[in-house]
Write a protein that binds this DNA or RNA. Structure first.
Length: 559
RNA sequence: AGGGGUAUCGCCAAACGGUAAGGCAACGGCCUCUGACGCCGUCAUCUCUUGGUUCGAAUCCAGGUACCCCUGCCA
């Protein structure tokens, strides 16, 4: 394990405290957690937090973590999502081993328990329609009213429920409800719906069922069946906890899991809800679920984020119960930290301007030795061709340099990284006054170090690529998808905050020759500009496409 | 308005009655053939607020205030 894969440092948090105590007191000998996604969409960075919490806790406390699909609503779920979710969890580096489960594996047991509840007089078949149920439910401040069907006989409910299962009734005509308390201040306890009729095939169990359990009736019991000790979910389920416990109290379940809640992740400059992500995809505002600008795990993966960086991010932000907004820069810092250690360096000119070195012999080529990593000699070195005509980045030249600019300008000198010091002697412009090319002279004695032959020290070091040896590629520069820290914020349509320059495609970038055999696994630091990786989808041998994962920090441009 | 939560540095987050950890950011400085990286240093007399208990409170009590979640046959 290389140092960057080690988790930064393990901070204490309330979940660890609870588990510590449960283990110490002997309440549990070992812990079992689970990551329970509904397969109705792709995973995003918020899910990564949950995955890291659940798998991380199991790892750190010597327990195990299950991957369980919470697949109780076939109307929204698809096999495609199941596959993608598994892949994303694996990508993060977690392994559920033998413990892959589906809530739907328990449908028969759940059905039997529903029958048990009816027999106990604790559930009944409801004939009211959805609208009527809503009306009877009352409001936040007013109690609800009992349904007229609440007092129907056990036998009648039993009969109706089995016929619901048999598919005798159309969708929406009846539901099974728990008989709890229509006056409860907690609305979730006002006779919640347990089963609804849905003549829809299910991605995992096919068309075996015409009725499907609701989340509340499935989750806790499934936890119990799997022997989950700590059922960790997000805060919005807190008001469901009394219901979760009501089922465990009233059913002959084999274990007694406990639910704990934590605050979900919010990230600035993006949206996280499945609905909005889906809309961005459907409206083709982004290219797909794996668009590199999206906070989806597939998007981050395609962009070039490393699993280690995402895991470190999750570790770094901690776990709490207060609503929090994490600044995206935290995520960006995590990839930089990882890639700074692992990424080999290379030179690439994104916005090329030609620099002709007039005093360098025509046709001569020299091999310059460049370290692949300045702090890690073990990563070796490579040779780079130098010749009379080179490309430099437009950003590294200013005709009228601003104060403090220490790159190239007329009459000025700059060190070409791993090569010579050059001086700009003239500018060639076209009739519009635009720069066509630059001319300069090199100092033959300046190959080593940053001192000129007469002993002066040059301030700037810039990257370059030999024109004769360069490989042309497309580079995609990504920026935040939204220009507002919280595009989700009240009222307004989040789409109005879309950042018009969230992607900039540069099609004439000049890369050093060694990059021509770049593979899609290697992330490079293009020196002085950022971290890049081949786009695994669009890059071809004819036309290489690189994605910018993240920029380097730039304290100069910041000012 | 009913129920359930949460309030500690710009953003996260520890601290469990004993006198405010840590990370990120920021700011100084050093180093540097990446204005990157690295290194050194600075960064809450104070914990939403008002009272109270106590030798002692971010931690306990009482009253305010702000924000979040709950009225799907979604999860």
């Amino acid at each position: 394990m290389s140092s960057n894969e080690q988790i930064a440092h393990i901070a204490n948090n309330f979940l660890r405290t609870i588990i510590d105590e449960d283990l110490k007191s002997g309440k549990h000998n070992s812990i079992v957690t689970r990551f329970p996604p509904e397969p109705n969409g792709y995973l995003h960075i918020g899910h990564a937090k949950s995955i890291c919490i659940n798998f991380g806790l199991a790892r750190d406390f010597g327990g195990r973590c299950h991957l369980r699909f919470d697949d109780t609503n076939p109307a929204k779920e698809e096999q495609e999502y199941i596959d993608s979710i598994k892949e994303s969890v694996r990508w993060l580096g977690f392994d559920w081993g033998e413990h892959l489960y589906y809530a739907s594996d328990n449908f028969e047991q759940l059905y039997q328990w529903a029958v048990f509840l009816i027999e106990q007089g604790k559930a009944y078949v409801e004939d009211l329609n959805a609208e009527q149920i809503r009306a009877y439910r009352g409001t936040l401040t007013e109690p609800g009213k009992d349904s007229p069907y609440r007092s129907r006989s056990v036998d009648e409910s039993l009969d109706l429920f089995s016929r619901m299962r048999a598919g005798e009734f159309p969708d929406g005509t009846r539901v099974l409800r728990a008989k709890i308390d229509m006056a409860s201040p907690n609305i979730n306890l006002r006779d919640p719906v347990l089963y609804r009729i849905l003549h829809t095939p299910h991605p995992h169990v096919g068309d075996a069922w015409k009725i499907y359990p609701m989340y509340d009736f499935a989750h806790g019991q499934t936890d119990a069946i799997e022997g989950i000790t700590h059922s960790i979910c997000t805060l919005e389920f807190e008001s469901h906890k009394p219901l979760y416990e009501w089922f465990l109290d009233n059913l002959p379940v084999p274990a007694r899991p406990r639910q704990y809640e934590f605050a979900r992740l919010n990230l600035t400059y993006t949206v996280m809800s499945k609905r909005k992500l889906q809309e961005l995809v459907q409206l083709q505002i982004v290219s797909g679920w794996d668009d590199p600008r999206l906070p989806t795990l597939e998007g981050l993966k395609r962009r070039g984020y490393t699993p280690a960086s995402v895991k470190n991010f999750c570790e770094q932000i901690g776990v709490g119960r207060s609503d929090s907004w994490i600044d995206v820069t935290n995520l960006e810092e995590c990839v930089r930290a990882d890639l700074n250690i692992t990424a080999p360096r290379a030179m690439a000119v994104l916005r090329p301007i030609k620099l002709i070195i007039d005093n360098y012999p025509v046709g001569q080529v020299e091999e310059m030795l460049a370290a692949n990593h300045p702090q890690n000699p073990e990563m070796g070195s490579r040779s780079i061709n130098f010749s009379r005509e080179i490309w430099i980045d437009a950003d590294d030249f200013m005709e009228i340099p601003s104060k403090g600019f220490h790159r190239l300008s007329p009459g000025g000198e700059v060190k070409l990284r791993s090569s010579y010091i050059v001086k700009c002697t003239s500018i060639t412009k076209d009739k519009n006054g635009d720069i066509v090319e630059l001319h300069g002279e090199y100092d033959p004695a300046s190959r080593e170090g940053i001192h000129t032959s007469d002993g002066r020290k040059v301030k700037g070091v810039i990257h370059w690529v030999s024109a004769a040896h360069a490989v042309t590629a497309e580079v995609r520069l990504f920026d935040r998808l939204f220009s507002d820290p919280n595009p989700d914020r009240g009222g307004a349509d989040y789409k109005q905050f879309l950042n018009p320059s969230s992607i900039e495609t540069l099609s004439n970038c000049k890369l050093e020759a060694s990059l021509s055999c770049a593979d899609s696994e290697t992330r490079y630091q293009f020196e002085r500009t950022g971290y890049f990786r081949i786009d695994p989808k669009d890059s071809t041998s004819d036309k290489m496409v690189f994605n910018r994962i993240v920029t380097l920090r730039d304290t100069w441009n910041q000012k």
